[in-house]
């Protein structure tokens, strides 16, 4: 499991995260949501060790600061919000880098299956630099999946850290990527995802951590967290979730009348 205690981050002389405690279980998708500027991405970057921070992060019971980066790369993979590349590597070369970074160096036969998970096999020979934003995002997800292809190795779960994995995708690919990520969790891996869209979050996440102003504002399942009092307070606007009849899954529609806006 992933545990974090007292994560505090200062950026540009200003404290942006104030002692966040957090936990995520393998076999589940834990989503991090919150308004713009609430510290979602900052928190993810602190969790993955990209940002200097106070507090400790434990990965499967070990403090991540004590794990060498090469070993860490075999335990978890990180998807940034967007990746611009300087040189025209082909899509399959990008995915191969992921294989090499994890425990799967030389297993080139996994390149196409990894691309298939994000619906991008047709891009395999294209230069990455020629792709659209959504295509690049899917290719990066394929690279990250390739890095930790098996969700569990020797009974040790491996982890996916995703920063807005579906925000630049069309609905069809959003659905495919969510299915892929759910499948990874269902097979025992752990997923921590920063999400923007609350409806997609409700559809995807087992647990949701809501951040506001660098603090945890709420924590729980979609049913527990996506309620009118919590959301209205966090997002500073009236938000009244509806329920999908079959699964009682909460959903939100813009509810203000045109006149109010």
């Amino acid at each position: 499991m992933i545990e974090a205690q007292g994560i505090t981050v200062r950026l540009g002389g200003r404290e942006t995260l104030h002692g966040i405690d957090f936990a995520a279980q393998p076999g589940q998708i834990t989503a991090i949501v919150g308004p713009n500027g609430s510290g979602k991405t900052t928190f993810l970057r602190a969790l993955t060790g990209e940002l200097k921070h106070r507090g400790t992060v434990w990965l499967n019971g070990r403090a991540t600061a004590d794990i060498p980066v090469a070993e860490l790369a075999g335990l978890r993979a990180v998807l940034p919000q967007s990746v611009r590349m300087a040189f025209p590597f082909t899509v399959s070369e990008v995915v191969r880098m992921g294989l090499r970074a994890g425990l799967s160096a030389g297993r080139d036969s996994l390149i196409l299956p990894a691309l298939d998970r994000v619906g991008a096999t047709y891009l395999a020979d294209r230069p990455y630099t020629d792709l659209s934003g959504g295509e690049q995002q899917r290719v990066q997800l394929a690279r990250v999946l390739a890095q930790i292809w098996e969700p569990v190795v020797d009974d040790i779960p491996r982890w996916l850290f995703l920063d807005e994995p579906v925000s630049s995708l069309d609905p069809g690919h959003q659905f495919l990527v969510i299915r892929t990520v759910r499948d990874f969790a269902a097979r025992g891996g752990g997923v921590i995802a920063v999400m923007h869209d609350l409806n997609l979050t409700a559809m995807m996440a087992d647990r949701i951590t809501v951040l506001k102003d660098g603090r945890v504002a709420a924590n729980g399942t979609a049913q527990e967290v996506m309620t009118e009092p919590v959301l209205s307070r966090v997002y500073d606007c009236p938000l009244r979730p509806g329920r999908m009849p079959a699964q009682a899954m909460p959903f939100l529609l813009p509810q203000a009348s045109p006149l109010e806006i």
Partner: peptide, 17 residues
């Protein structure tokens, strides 16, 4: 350097020193 082509943070997450 191949890793850094993806950005320094991404390279770090891929095990590059």
């Amino acid at each position: 350097l191949n890793g850094i082509a993806l950005g320094e943070a991404a390279a770090m997450h891929m095990g590059v020193e």
